[in-house]
């Protein structure tokens, strides 16, 4: 049976906010991105840094469609590890630098106006 870890009341985690919770020996970061909740391990795959404590921001991109000019994209969906700045998409766990690196994602549920992680 899945374990339910209480994160907190929904109003504690407005859009753009994040909370790191201790889920019995592992730390998990829960994020609100545009009204939806996502949960990622608070452990960077690079050098074991506290990934979820990093700034939530966007990133720069350029492509042939913009004649290789810079664009600011994915604002509010990228968490940047505070140790060495590896960027991850909060909604998918995808590492922006390495296509093969993807973080595990935990299921999140909302019941009675409270957020839970399902382990």
């Amino acid at each position: 049976m899945a374990r339910k870890i209480l994160v907190g009341p929904v109003e504690e985690l407005p859009t753009g906010a994040r909370k790191i919770v201790d889920a019995g020996g592992i730390e998990i970061g829960v994020f609100n991105v545009a009204g939806a909740f996502y949960a990622l391990p608070n452990l960077c795959v690079h050098q074991w840094g506290p990934l979820c404590a990093g700034d939530v921001s966007g990133t720069l991109a350029n492509s042939s469609e913009t004649d290789w000019r810079y664009q600011w994209v994915r604002d509010g969906t990228i968490v940047i590890c505070p140790w060495h700045s590896l960027e991850f998409d909060i909604t998918t766990g995808q590492c922006l630098a390495y296509p093969r690196v993807k973080l595990r994602r935990y299921n999140v549920a909302v019941e009675d106006d409270c957020i839970y992680i399902l382990l």
Binding site: D55, G58, L60, I80, S85
Partner: peptide, 8 residues
């Protein structure tokens, strides 16, 4: 840009 390395 916000959050990126040189701001630290």
């Amino acid at each position: 840009f916000p959050g990126h390395w040189s701001t630290r």
